Computed example of a mutant assay.
Amino acid sequence: MSLGPWQVLLIAVVVLVLFGRGKISSLMGEVGKGITSFKRGVQEGKDELEEQLEEAKDVTPESEKTKDDA
């Protein structure tokens, strides 16, 4: 079952009447802040993982390293 344009418009009007324009505006602002915060957290997590990969130590024994170079 999919909603047609008239059903979506009717739902939007009912929500607007029930909550008022100011309440919906502030709610959408909070949703936007939440999305921005989530994206920032994901990016910080990626940056942290990349940093840890760069700092990872090579624990290959020296004898194994020389075999690969030859």
Score class of each variant (00 low, 15 high):
Glu62Gln: 11
Lys67Asp: 05
Leu9Arg: 12
Val14Cys: 08
Ser25Cys: 10
Ser25Lys: 15
Thr66Cys: 05
Val42Cys: 07
Lys57Gln: 14
Glu44Gly: 03
Met28Thr: 08
Leu10His: 09
Gly20Trp: 01
Leu3Gly: 03
Pro5Gln: 12
Ser37Tyr: 04
Lys67Ala: 05
Val13Gln: 06
Val42Trp: 06
Leu27Asp: 03
Asp69Val: 09
Asp69Gln: 08
Arg21Gln: 12
Leu16Ile: 00
Ile11Gln: 04
Lys67Glu: 09
Glu44Tyr: 03
Gly20Cys: 01
Thr60Phe: 03
Lys46Pro: 00
Val42Tyr: 08
Lys23Ala: 15
Ile24Lys: 02
Ile35Ser: 02
Glu62Asp: 13
Leu9Asn: 09
Val59Phe: 07
Gly22Trp: 05
Val13Asn: 06
Leu16Ala: 12
Lys39Leu: 15
Val15Thr: 05
Ser26Leu: 13
Ser2Met: 07
Glu48Phe: 07
Gly41Thr: 04
Val31Trp: 00
Gly34Thr: 02
Val13His: 02
Ala70Gln: 09
Glu64Tyr: 09
Gln43Asn: 10
Gln52Pro: 00
Glu64Gly: 13
Val59Thr: 14
Glu44Gln: 13
Lys46Ala: 11
Ser63Trp: 14
Val42Ser: 06
Gly22Leu: 08
Glu44Thr: 10
Lys23Cys: 13
Gln52Ile: 10
Arg21Thr: 15
Gly32Glu: 06
Glu48Ala: 14
Leu3Met: 13
Asp69Leu: 11
Thr60Asp: 04
Gln43Glu: 15
Glu64Lys: 12
Glu50Met: 10
Gly22Cys: 05
Ile24Pro: 03
Ile35Val: 11
Thr36Trp: 01
Val15His: 05
Val31Cys: 02
Ser25Ala: 15
Ile11Trp: 01
Ser26Ile: 10
Val59Lys: 10
Lys57His: 09
Leu18Tyr: 07
Ala56Gln: 15
Val14Gly: 02
Gly41Asn: 12
Glu55Asn: 15
Gly22Ile: 05
Pro61Gly: 06
Asp58Asn: 15
Ser2Ala: 11
Ile24Asn: 04
Ile11Lys: 03
Lys67Asn: 05
Gly4Gln: 01
Ser25Pro: 01
Lys39Val: 14
Val17Ser: 02
Leu18Ile: 10
Glu54Ile: 11
